[in-house]
Design a protein around this nucleic acid. Structure first.
Length: 868
RNA sequence: GCCCGGAUGGCGGAACUGGUAGACGCGCCGGACUCAAAAUCCGGUGGUGGUGACACCGUGUGGGUUCGAUUCCCUCUCCGGGCACCA
């Protein structure tokens, strides 16, 4: 064994061994218990960032740990290879997105390999290859046949200068990110997937998914958003006797008990009544037009100023018959319910604000616990449930009774029914972009939208186009665009929209079971490997990706393609790696981001203010706070420098030690040295041990004094490491336990052969216990410790419970809850003995004095609390 | 704005089921080795007061439950994630 730890040498040797032995190529074997461990596949953005290292190290630790527990482990890797950044890079460099993507994949594959992850590279796949995405198209056509996929109009962001559709991310302060032009809303035909048909099932199943974190289940449940309420109608007659002038304005409410307090109705700007009223009202038409400039995202929508205008239309209250004015309000969403709400300002905060602003009446109809109701100020308890008042026949009824009575009355009038409403909307998958999976539709002027026949699949995306920012280049690619109609043979046009990249990632975990199958989407191997035993990925995917995958799996289940409905048995959501973000805004709507590595933090001339300066030009840049590392914010830290300088093991150890893996981690590279130092200490400890020759076998029946202590510490550490990796997934504390054990060994210079045997065992525990985290150096150390077989094939070591036994335990004594003394008692000592020992402690005596103990609490094996 | 998390020494974090707050690491201070430096090793390190034994304070804020609260409940503040076309 070499005295010096040289990571480059050690890591190359270990990786060569694993490659030569094909350790990680998973084979289906019905005799073995399978374990499918999957980390979310990366977008090939160019280089790995710290979030990737964190994610894939967690997956690797779990995979290697399970492998040592005798499981047949599959840990595959692939590339989420379609997406917007490739088009942006193409525009910036004039290179086709395909070339940029494949170059990135090649580089990042090398990085992943250098980190020594136990990946089965024989199953690698990229979603941008036709062999993969043809099955997106195939399944889309099956969905179309069953009505799960359908066409309707949707709203997109339109940049009038570039004449292109923008992603929400490309809209900054209402302007296009490249042109700075105000963004418009456009309605275009799009394809949708009917995820709402699965809403109830997706929600109900969450309660059974014990392998998922509670917070993720809560987020999904709220996203699906079931609300039980009443859909009720306000009848109207407008514009005289015309047929379309009579009708009912339908609204949905979860607070039907407040119906008698409804003093207005509000409709979304896109609502038909709003459009109707705007025909005769230029000001209203202008307001509705203005609302079309409204922000693209829900967050911006919810934080914008609440504004509205009267339509001049009046509807009738369904029970009182009172005339109720209809307003257009920018906070009412067309996409939820019927795009209209009843306004009950007395008991809804938003309605209250709206009513105050526009002078609408406020009518309290719920008794707010006997407290005074003031129409001047909003108090949170106004929204609480209570007894109805000022509500005629419903007075005195509690919430549920009131809702029941009102719903019954409304039902008799044909103006209302109890209804369950969902927040979840259908999934729009059409993207007006080039670098994605083509939607397999052909538009014929005679036959309409015709599905591409299965035998013509895949619809292959041309790979040599370079987008220039002015719309989808497929529209200018005649070879792609012009095609005969499959139905009539006439000249037709191919659909140029591509699919949302979430489609690609909604089933890739299935394809890893059979990536080489050219005949069908899936095959029986899926039945062996799936569902995924452990899925690992960032918390940012808690809703969309995971919900879409659950939906997609259900569809495939109903098509008879898979036997299960939930794809991920256990889910681990790692926290995000954050870093400060720096930017400049060179013009309206435009933002340029600078990597923190190129920015220097200093104090300004007055030394009052912390400023950030770009090294290349010495000019100040703005700080956007500490946020998740991402390509778009250009604030990622490249782990390559870390790997180059200290090796993969240090990079892996450091990322696992820096924080518990499910919590956010603010980046700082202090502490890397500490991880490196520990590995060097471990190397030296093993070196010092083995240079004294092979130890004699341990004689467990002849342990004396410190030998017993060291052995207990070693097995305590092993128990903790096993539990922390296997159950708790707190790798930081597993590492701490190993460090503690090594510290204890440093204070135990072996003086006898039996001492050396104890040290040998303890070192094996450290090496084996840390091997899932730092697999290269432990591979070398295991051989150095005298083993003939590779550590990767070694079974996990069992804890020797005999080693853990002690004859006495330390307990603490509190007086009035404050720590006052320590006592040592025999294991299994009865309570009276423990009490007596506690009361006899001189330090405790000092605090009790002459006072009599009023109460004495004994927590066995832990503490005594004396209350005086 | 809504939904979900988080906040503990100078810093990252530990305390798993309500029971010793600060494990482990970084940094810093002191020492050893060295001509010197690096590396390495040994010791110390929450704050305040005290020569000291020791005492008091201390887990974002304010309150509550309890013999006992970092842990449970309520309130507020700040930070992060998601909000449907970033992935």
């Amino acid at each position: 064994m070499q005295e010096r730890y040289e990571p480059a040498v050690v890591e190359a040797e270990a990786q060569d061994f694993w490659n030569d032995e094909r350790c990680f190529e998973a084979k289906e074997d019905s005799a073995l218990e399978k374990y499918y461990c999957l980390s979310m596949f990366p977008y090939p953005s160019g280089r790995l960032h710290m979030g990737h290292v964190r994610n894939y190290t967690i997956g690797d630790v779990v995979s290697r740990f399970m492998r040592m527990h005798g499981k047949n482990v599959l840990q595959p890797m692939g590339w989420d290879a379609f997406g917007l950044p490739a088009e942006n890079a193409a525009m910036a460099n004039g290179v086709p997105p395909a070339k940029w993507t494949f170059d990135n994949i090649a580089y990042m594959r090398g990085q992943l390999k250098s980190l020594g992850f136990a990946l089965d590279w024989s199953r690698e796949l990229a979603t941008c290859s036709p062999e993969y995405y043809r099955w997106n198209q195939w399944l889309f056509l099956r969905m179309l046949e069953r009505g799960i996929a359908y066409q309707k109009t949707g709203v997109v962001n339109w940049d009038p200068v570039d004449r292109t559709v923008l992603a929400n991310e490309q809209v900054i302060d209402g302007r296009g990110w490249r042109t700075g032009a105000p963004v418009e809303k456009r309605e275009i035909p799009m394809y949708y997937l009917k995820i709402t048909a699965f809403a109830e099932d997706l929600l109900d199943s969450l309660t059974k998914m014990s392998g998922w974190p509670e917070r993720v289940r809560a987020m999904q449940a709220n996203w699906i958003g079931m609300s039980v309420g009443v859909r009720l109608g306000f009848p109207y007659q407008i514009g005289g006797a015309t047929a379309d002038g009579t009708g009912v304005l339908w609204v949905f409410t979860t607070r039907a008990d407040t119906l008698m307090g409804a003093t207005f109705c509000a409709v979304a700007p896109e609502h038909q009544l709003a459009r109707y009223a705007a025909r005769q009202d230029a000001k209203l038409a202008a307001f509705i037009e203005e609302c079309k400039q409204a922000p693209a995202t829900e967050s911006e929508l919810a934080t914008q100023e609440k504004r509205g205008m009267p339509t001049g239309l009046v509807v009738r209250h369904p029970l009182s018959g009172e005339a109720t004015p209809v307003w257009v309000a920018n906070y009412v969403l067309m996409s939820y319910g019927d795009g209209a709400v009843m306004g009950v300002p007395a008991h809804d905060e938003r309605d209250f604000e709206f009513a105050k602003k526009y002078g609408l009446p406020i009518k309290p109809v719920i008794d707010v616990g006997g407290r005074e109701y003031s129409i001047h100020n909003w108090e949170p308890w106004y929204a609480a449930h209570g007894r109805c008042i000022n509500s005629g026949p419903f007075d005195g009824l509690e919430f549920q009774a009131a809702v029941d009575a009102l719903a019954a009355d409304l039902s008799r009038l044909g103006l209302g029914e109890k209804q369950t409403s969902w927040r979840l909307r259908d999934w729009g998958i059409s993207r007006q972009r080039y670098w994605g999976c083509p939607i397999p539709i052909i538009h014929c002027s005679l036959c309409g939208a015709v599905p591409v026949p299965d035998e013509q699949l895949p619809v292959v995306l041309p790979v040599d186009l370079v987008p220039d920012g002015s719309g989808n280049p497929l529209l200018k690619d005649d070879a792609f665009l012009t095609v005969p109609c499959p139905r009539c043979g006439g000249k037709a046009r191919r659909e140029t929209d591509t699919m949302d990249t979430f489609v690609d990632s909604s089933w890739y975990f299935l394809r890893f079971a059979c990536p080489d199958n050219e005949e069908s989407m899936l095959d029986p191997r899926v039945g062996y490997w799936l569902p995924v035993d452990q899925y690992i990925g960032g918390i940012e995917h808690a809703i969309l990706h995971l919900l879409y995958s659950r939906f997609w799996t259900r569809v495939m289940n109903e098509l008879g393609l898979v036997a299960f409905r939930e794809p991920f048995e256990n889910l681990f959501t790692q926290g995000m790696v954050l870093n400060e973000v720096f930017f400049r805004k060179p013009g309206a709507g435009r933002v340029e981001y600078y990597n923190p590595g190129d920015v220097e933090i200093m104090l300004d001339k007055t030394a009052q203010r912390r400023i950030a300066v770009l090294r290349s030009d010495g000019e100040e840049v703005e700080s956007g706070g500490v946020v998740t590392m991402s390509k778009s914010k250009n604030n990622g830290v490249d782990p390559q420098a870390l790997v180059d300088e200290f090796g993969a093991d240090t990079a892996r150890l450091f990322t696992m030690f820096a924080a518990p893996p499910d919590q956010t981690l603010e980046w700082s590279d202090e502490g890397v040295q500490g991880a490196y130092r520990f590995i060097k200490r471990l190397w030296k400890a093993v070196y010092d041990h083995v240079t004294h020759g092979a130890p004699v076998p341990l004689d467990k029946s002849a342990l004396i004094g410190t030998q017993r202590t060291i052995r207990r510490q070693a097995h305590q550490a092993l128990a903790k490491i096993t539990d922390d990796i296997g159950r708790r997934r707190t790798f930081n504390t597993a590492i701490a336990a190993a460090m503690e054990l090594l510290n204890a060994l440093a204070k135990f210079p072996p003086a006898s052969q039996q001492d050396r045997a104890v040290v040998q065992e303890a070192l094996e525990i450290v090496v084996l216990g840390l091997s899932p985290i730092i697999p290269h150096v432990t591979h070398a150390l295991w051989l150095a410790l005298g083993h003939r077989t590779a550590l990767i094939d070694e079974p996990w070591m069992p804890v020797d419970s005999a080693a853990l036994q002690t004859s006495s335990i330390d307990m603490v004594v509190q007086v009035n809850g404050k720590l006052r003394g320590h006592i040592t008692v025999a294991v299994g000592a009865d309570e009276d003995t423990v009490r007596a020992a506690a009361l006899a402690d001189p330090h405790v005596q000092k605090f009790i004095g002459n006072a009599a103990a009023r109460k004495l609490i004994v927590v066995p094996g832990k503490l005594v609390n004396i209350v005086v």
